[in-house]
């Protein structure tokens, strides 16, 4: 498979189909890092396998006009589709080399985000590569690990999240790595009004994490990058998953899976009053 990845990247670059190719490289110490290559000769250094957890859509400059080739796993591919739906990624500017993802492991066990993965193949691609024996699949909702939090009483939940958010140092790594955070200027930087208070305080941290999660409602593709980036291990995925589940149950929408979908908050049905009282849909 790796040969096909290298060949394709080489071909695209050599033929001028793309100006730049985004993929992965394994460093001598064994760690895996994303790379941007512009020269067909560099294609030999590309790698795919365990450690390729990064969502390369998060590294694409959406404002540039360069032609981009990009290697996308299932989750990354959903980010691409979601960005396209939102008018941020112009399909014509991208050449997508899809990978049927075998699931990534670290230290012998499957990555957490791969355990809960539901789509191992990008919904759109120009070419697709896969390892023998690895097939494309889709799954319905999987256990999202929220039951524990949801079983807590409200004050206990609040205390739980207070404890988590207290650690936030407001480095915004989660935002910066998120492939779907692309505002010109983040709401945290808005001063009139100062919705999100500045400074590292529990209340403003809380606010920040809520608004971050809400902004991703119906958009998050579960690539797990925010979780991975957080230096203080705040379980950001819980908030995202909670809203993802809600969006799917209430609006039958799974972000980044249907290139013809309208973003879930830009659409409505006239007869969906039941969303106000989920549970009793009678």
């Amino acid at each position: 498979m790796i040969d096909r990845i290298r060949d394709t990247a080489r071909r695209w670059l050599a033929d001028g189909i793309v100006d730049v190719f985004l993929g992965f490289r394994k460093r001598p110490d064994g760690t895996v890092v994303p790379v941007r290559i512009r020269d067909a000769g560099e294609a030999d250094g590309l790698f795919f396998g365990d450690g390729c957890v990064h969502n390369l859509m998060g590294l694409v400059d959406l404002r540039s006009e360069e032609k981009v080739g990009v290697l996308l796993k299932g989750c990354d591919g959903r980010a691409f589709v979601q960005l396209a739906i939102e008018g941020e990624a112009d399909r014509g500017r991208f050449k997508v080399l899809g990978v049927v993802c075998p699931g990534l492991s670290s230290n012998g066990s499957l990555e957490e985000k791969c355990e809960t993965c539901r789509y191992n193949t990008p919904p759109v691609y120009d070419e697709l590569v896969k390892e023998d024996g690895v097939e494309s699949w889709e799954k319905g909702p999987v256990a999202d690990g929220l039951a524990e939090v949801e079983s807590m009483s409200h004050p206990v939940r609040a205390a739980y999240f207070k404890n988590e958010f207290d650690r936030c140092i407001r480095c915004y790594a989660c935002r910066d790595i998120c492939p779907l955070c692309y505002c010109e200027e983040c709401v945290t930087e808005k001063s009139r009004p100062q919705w999100v208070e500045v400074g590292v305080k529990t209340s403003s941290n809380f606010y920040w994490h809520l608004i971050r999660a809400y902004h991703l409602a119906g958009r998050c593709v579960a690539c797990g990058e925010c979780d991975r980036a957080c230096p203080v291990d705040i379980p950001l995925k819980y908030l995202n998953r909670k809203l993802s589940r809600e969006v799917e149950e209430l609006f039958d929408y799974v972000p980044g899976t249907d290139p013809d979908a309208t973003p879930v908050l830009l659409e409505f049905k006239e007869d969906e009053e039941h969303v106000l009282c989920p549970g009793d849909e009678s």
């Binding site: 929220l146 939090v149 949801e150 409200h154 004050p155 206990v156 939940r157 609040a158 205390a159 739980y160 999240f161 809380f206 809520l210 999660a213 809400y214 409602a217 119906g218 819980y238 908030l239 909670k242 809203l243 809600e246 969006v247 209430l250 908050l265 969303v275 106000l276 989920p278």
Partner: peptide, 13 residues
């Protein structure tokens, strides 16, 4: 609102 409410519910409201 449906989403705001469920998010707030989740974190303790």
């Amino acid at each position: 609102f449906a989403l705001m409410k469920s998010l707030l519910d989740f974190v303790g409201i």
